[in-house]
Design a protein around this nucleic acid. Structure first.
Lengths: 210, 210
DNA sequence: GTCTATAACGGGATAGAC
DNA sequence: GTCTATCCCGTTATAGAC
């Protein structure tokens, strides 16, 4: 039974509160209050609120870059792709405070902007690589121009699905079932797959739809 | 040469500043400063900042509901649909401050939430009606379940495309060319259209791509 | 490392004169 | 309708004792 360092508790509590209330609505006072430590103590560990945000962002960035390191020339089967999507949505959900107030957060902590853009770009590239793998395997056929458009659409959907889903179906900012996002993403691919693969996917994608 | 009422100037200036700097970053002082009136004067016309936001929202709501009143049983041709999309994106662009900080704005002015949700729902329904019109005309074929998914995707894209586009391609919060959004939306329909219509659309959609 | 107290600042909003 | 002056409050951040 190991005692968690205060510094880490601050990070955990902040992430929790940011995700449920939205980063702009969470004050340093609220964080320290929730943890039952003094505000001064919090500022002993972090010199500013922005530092907390940045450190959380760094963790997010690391997880994402790790996940997005897709091998160029592997033949990825469809079910592995679904799994990949699932991990992606889970990572996004864990740091959903970033996405819920994306423009706002990036405008106030502007050093994050370039880094976020880089991740976004990597997402698009990962989708490109994966679709090309599907094409090589002969289970997907799509004209070049439509491929670009599709990858943009996939990238956009990873970003905004959970906000959108919360907005249109739920009351609060609770975590959303990542499955619905995966389902939606798979349906973007669906029309470009060959017939066998389509039927297969129609059957399996229901697993994801709660 | 008619003189514009101060009240309206406040609304115009606010909208301008909200769109370019983000609503959370715009203080009532900045608004009055920009107009070269006193802060007190601003508060003579509006009893709070929230009232300004609400009135702008109301204008947005009116425009939207007007636009979304799609007749149930009309046979809408594809190029009219494109035009509809264009108007939609323009309306969104005019009030982009709402979308750029959507969760944040809706959480701070919570009376807007239900109303925004209602508009969102109407968007989805409008797309449903339009797709069904395409089906009736025999230019589109899509299974029922995929149709639901497609309409959600269209709704999501109307909401977030401009934020996404700004984020991934531009520096500031300037207005985005609505054409790219229309292009992207049309590409979502593309795979479900019959061959003739697809070829047609591939040709015309280039108009929209800047 | 942790506390209490408080400074410093900014933004929303009001009072009252003109 | 418009102005100036000011209040009030929440939030970030620091100082200094324990």
């Amino acid at each position: 039974m190991k005692k968690i360092k205060t510094r880490d508790r601050i990070l955990n509590t902040s992430l929790l509160l940011f995700n449920s209330l939205g980063e702009p609505n969470v004050t340093t006072l609220l964080i320290s209050d929730e943890m039952e430590i003094s505000p001064g103590n919090l500022y002993y560990h972090f010199k500013s609120k922005g530092d907390i945000v940045e450190e959380l962002f760094q963790a997010y960035e690391a997880e994402m870059l790790d996940l997005l390191a897709v091998p160029e020339d592997a033949d990825v089967p469809m079910d592995q792709f679904s799994f990949f999507l699932h991990l992606l949505f889970e990572a996004v959900a864990r740091y959903r405070f970033l996405y819920q107030d994306l423009v706002n957060v990036l405008s106030r902590y502007d050093r994050l902007q370039v880094r976020f853009r880089r991740i976004l770009k990597k997402k698009g590239e990962a989708f490109k690589v994966l679709c090309e793998s599907f094409r090589r395997q002969g289970i997907m056929s799509i004209p070049e121009e439509e491929l670009a458009s599709l990858c943009e659409q996939l990238t956009l959907t990873v970003c905004y699905w959970s906000s959108f889903d919360t907005l249109s179906h739920l009351e609060d900012r609770e975590a959303v079932d990542p499955g619905r996002g995966v389902y939606q993403m798979l349906h973007l691919l669906l029309p470009y797959l060959d017939d066998d693969e389509q039927d297969q996917l129609r059957l399996t994608s229901h697993i994801y739809y709660r």
